[in-house]
């Protein structure tokens, strides 16, 4: 049995189920309690769990993230919500220098089972400071795991896995897609961290992407199908650890790959995938690994500039035609 749920509701179900199951799980962040969440992800949770476990913080990302890290070192399992990952930059010392390194520098004396979650990526005309993606930033750090997924059923199962994980896990959501609805199974299930999903099977080219770029990728696959090109679409779901095998297996079949990544191009997820493919599928490639990223610029406000910045289906179709040596 399944029903349609919006992404925000699926994420809430994950948190609610885990908080019912485990008394040590709690949620903290700006506006998560009385306001019911800036994006209503935590709607109703204060009513069910009370102020001990659903905690409004002052606007102090470094402070409340550090409080989460200390609580995790001392036996609790915090979920720290960032109103957006852009604001988490203020807390990177606690995420990168502390959460990620607690286990290593204490040689296993203390672990840090904590979830940091919130939206990542551009969400319209929000301008430079509110539009960045953070998957590659956080995935660069050993000790962290990174999930980035907007498919409601998978996001729910992944968030539950993240809450149960003994390591710090960064969960990247999407402001634009909190309202996106899809089938979500009834009942208890988990989605394992570290496994990609093939959203559409195909034979002629592999499109690899994550988070909301899955939509332009699928749209491009539809367009390409009209021209007789069969695209396989892979949704990474987890960025660290990266599911190399699913990518490499697909490329061995299609011999061509386009990576669609909303991050900036330099040293990003797309670069990492390019490395993996040239290393493990070199002899299978019939064209250079190609990528479609956000522009290598800050994101301005004006709508024309947003359009020029973001990857879209047309740019993906164009990239696929390049790797198939077709005229655009």
């Amino acid at each position: 049995m399944s029903r349609k749920l919006a992404l925000r509701d699926a994420l809430r179900e994950a948190m609610v189920e885990e908080m019912r199951r485990d008394e040590t799980v709690f949620l903290m962040g700006e506006e998560v309690a009385a306001y019911n969440g800036a994006y209503k992800v935590s709607k109703g949770m204060l009513d069910e769990f009370g102020p001990k476990r659903v905690i409004d913080t002052p606007i102090a990302e470094l402070g409340f993230t550090g409080i989460g890290v200390g609580a995790a070192m001392n036996g609790l399992r915090p979920i720290v919500e960032f109103m957006t990952w852009n604001f988490a930059i203020l807390a990177f010392d606690q995420i990168v220098n502390n959460a990620a390194k607690t286990l290593s520098q204490s040689a296993g004396n203390f672990s840090c089972p904590i979830v940091f979650r919130g939206p990542s990526g551009a969400a319209g005309q929000l301008a430079q400071q509110h539009s960045q993606t953070f998957e590659s930033w956080m995935a660069n750090v050993p000790g962290l795991k990174v999930i980035s997924c907007v498919h409601p059923a998978d996001a729910k199962g992944l968030l539950k896995s993240a809450i149960r994980d003994e390591n710090p896990v960064c969960v990247m959501e999407s402001e634009l897609l909190y309202g996106y609805q899809d089938e979500v199974p009834e009942g208890e299930y988990l989605v394992p961290i570290g496994k990609a999903a093939v959203r559409r099977e195909g034979t002629d080219v592999t499109l690899v992407t994550f988070n909301k770029m899955i939509f332009p990728a699928l749209e491009a696959a539809d367009e390409l199908a009209k021209e007789g090109i069969s695209a396989e679409v892979i949704d990474l779901r987890t960025i660290r650890p990266l599911d190399h095998q699913t990518i490499v297996n697909s490329v061995k079949k299609t011999n061509r790959i386009v990576v669609i990544d909303e991050s900036w191009p330099f040293a990003g997820v797309s670069s990492e995938i390019a490395y993996v493919v040239q290393k493990y599928a070199f002899d299978y490639l019939d064209a250079p690994v190609t990528r479609v990223n956000a522009a290598d610029t800050s994101l301005p406000y004006a709508s024309t500039l947003v359009d020029a910045y973001m990857p879209d289906a047309a740019r993906i179709v164009k990239a696929v035609k390049e790797v198939r040596y077709m005229k655009a």
């Binding site: 409340f64 409080i67 200390g70 609580a71 036996g75 609790l76 010392d93 502390n98």
Partner: peptide
């Protein structure tokens, strides 16, 4: 960095 961490360790003691 240990100032918020210690605050969080104390938070957990109160929670428990």
């Amino acid at each position: 960095a240990q100032i918020p961490i210690g605050t969080g360790i104390a938070f957990a003691e109160k929670y428990k």
